[in-house]
């Protein structure tokens, strides 16, 4: 998309320059001539305005003491009070730390495992099997987090779970009450996240590997390079650009987390909050369970703004490395 976008913007600029020369009258007649195109975009523009732009303006409620009898717009301005409250609590640090740590681990492990699986998948000779394996690793990515919650419950349920009742007795370990011990959850959530998302990254990286010119491998084989040498000298360097882009995109979203993973999988359990609460779940609970609009809107704005800065930064880094792959 991006190469094309760059080319078309060049053309666009030329068009706009000539447009300026044409003057206002010509421009107006141009608009009139293409009115059907303008009509076509109306539903989409209205939709994005309501669904995306109105909430952006709505962020001002973070600076208000919302009072429904007065209405949101007429509520009193209170400056940064909501943020003061938020950052005075120990929660602010905890949710920021959890969000960043979890996402960093996810990015690191998912990327490594996905590349390894993709490289192996590419080596499978029989087309039928490589297709079958690819379809199966994608199944976890296809299903909803609610279903994942059930699957994890079947494994970990304290009284009846597979691990407590079948696996641990076999190893001679006593049952663990998983849903009341926060210390296990960083590992559980990491495993669940890998299980669910590696298939997706794997498909992306496999597509990149398939795109490599087979002549490289032929030449390497003639020169007597081993499989491992080929992987290190050809595959990894040639998919590196795609890996970099995917990773930077994930880093850009490091302030956002998968709400379902942190809400459904631990079954919204209060005892686990110290290791399962992230910014998204905090905002949700403050709004829906506590009705604390001030706190939730402050945390939400904090996420939106820092998230925005990170997206811009990561894209800047991408565009430095490779102009074509940047989002803008």
């Amino acid at each position: 998309m991006n190469t094309v976008a760059a080319k078309t913007t060049a053309k666009e600029e030329a068009g706009i320059k000539s447009g300026r020369k044409l003057g206002f009258k010509k421009k107006l007649s141009n608009s009139l001539r293409y009115w059907p195109l303008l009509v076509m975009v109306i539903p989409g523009v209205v939709y994005l305005f309501i669904n995306n732009y109105l909430p952006m303006f709505g962020l001002i409620i973070a600076f208000k003491d919302v009072n429904f009898t007065k209405g949101i717009l007429a509520s009193d301005w209170i400056g940064f009070k909501n943020f003061e409250y938020l950052f005075k609590t120990s929660d602010a640090l905890l949710i920021t730390r959890n969000t960043l740590l979890y996402n960093s681990i996810f990015i690191l492990l998912n990327t490594t495992i996905a590349i390894a699986v993709a490289i192996m998948l590419n080596e499978v000779k029989k087309k039928f099997f490589s297709r079958f394996y690819q379809s199966v690793v994608l199944i976890p990515y296809l299903i909803s987090m609610v279903i994942v919650g059930y699957l994890v419950l079947a494994m970990l349920s304290g009284e009846t779970g597979f691990i407590n009742k079948q696996l641990l007795p076999m190893l001679g370990i006593e049952a663990i009450s998983w849903y009341s011990e926060p210390k296990y959850w960083p590992i559980i959530l990491t495993i669940v996240n890998i299980w669910k998302n590696v298939g997706y990254l794997c498909v992306i990286y496999l597509a990149a590997i398939i795109g490599i010119d087979p002549e490289y491998y032929e030449a390497a084989t003639i020169d007597g390079a081993s499989k491992w040498q080929q992987v290190r000298a050809i595959t990894v360097p040639l998919i590196a650009p795609v890996v970099t882009i995917m990773t930077l995109l994930q880093i850009g979203r490091i302030f956002y987390s998968d709400f379902g993973l942190f809400y459904q999988v631990p079954l919204n359990t209060g005892a686990l909050l110290s290791t399962t609460n992230v910014i998204d779940t905090y905002v949700y609970r403050a709004l829906m369970n506590l009705g604390d609009i001030g706190m939730s809107s402050a945390a939400g704005l904090y996420q939106s703004v820092v998230g925005f800065v990170l997206v811009i930064l990561s894209n800047y880094v991408v565009s430095k490395r490779n102009r074509d792959n940047a989002l803008f």
């Binding site: 949101i72 905002v283 925005f308 997206v311 811009i312």
Partner: peptide, 14 residues
Amino acid sequence: TLLFNGGLVPTYFI
């Protein structure tokens, strides 16, 4: 809209 969004709270109120 890909870069910035209002998040849950304002969206919910709208």
